[in-house]
């Protein structure tokens, strides 16, 4: 199972609409880094609106992806995290403080644009 990665100008857009298992998440990590390398994208938005469960491993992978992408010069934004997911993550003790977040895709793109302009 592969997660589609869409390119729009200098951004990459990913909407995760399947249940993330460990294998899919690792595959996604590899695919995304490769796409960033190929396209030279400056910003990445990962939309989690339709994800209703994130466990500690997935959270770690997502955190890693954000840091790895940053190393390669792409700013990542997580958007659309559901309240229930946020509560689960907090209960697990995962606060992902270093990861930028936004309410939805629209605000995520706006925030990214602001950050990249600065």
């Amino acid at each position: 199972m592969r997660i589609p990665i869409l390119k729009m100008h200098e951004y990459l857009l990913i909407s995760i609409q399947v249940e993330l298992d460990d294998q899919t998440a690792l595959q996604f990590q590899e695919d995304l880094l490769k796409r960033i390398h190929d396209t030279g994208a400056k910003g990445v938005v990962i939309d989690l609106t339709s994800v209703d469960m994130i466990d500690s491993f997935i959270a770690k992978v997502l955190g890693d992806v954000v840091r790895m992408s940053k190393l390669m010069g792409a700013q990542v934004m997580l958007t659309g995290i559901q309240p229930a997911v946020a509560i689960t993550l907090i209960d697990l003790g995962i606060s992902m403080r270093e990861v930028p977040t936004a309410l939805d895709l629209e605000q995520g793109l706006d925030k990214l644009r602001l950050e990249l302009e600065e």
Binding site: I81, L89, M96, T101
Partner: peptide, 12 residues
Amino acid sequence: IQAADAVRLLGA
């Protein structure tokens, strides 16, 4: 702190 972290995860 937990509430603030959760709010931040949502993007606010």
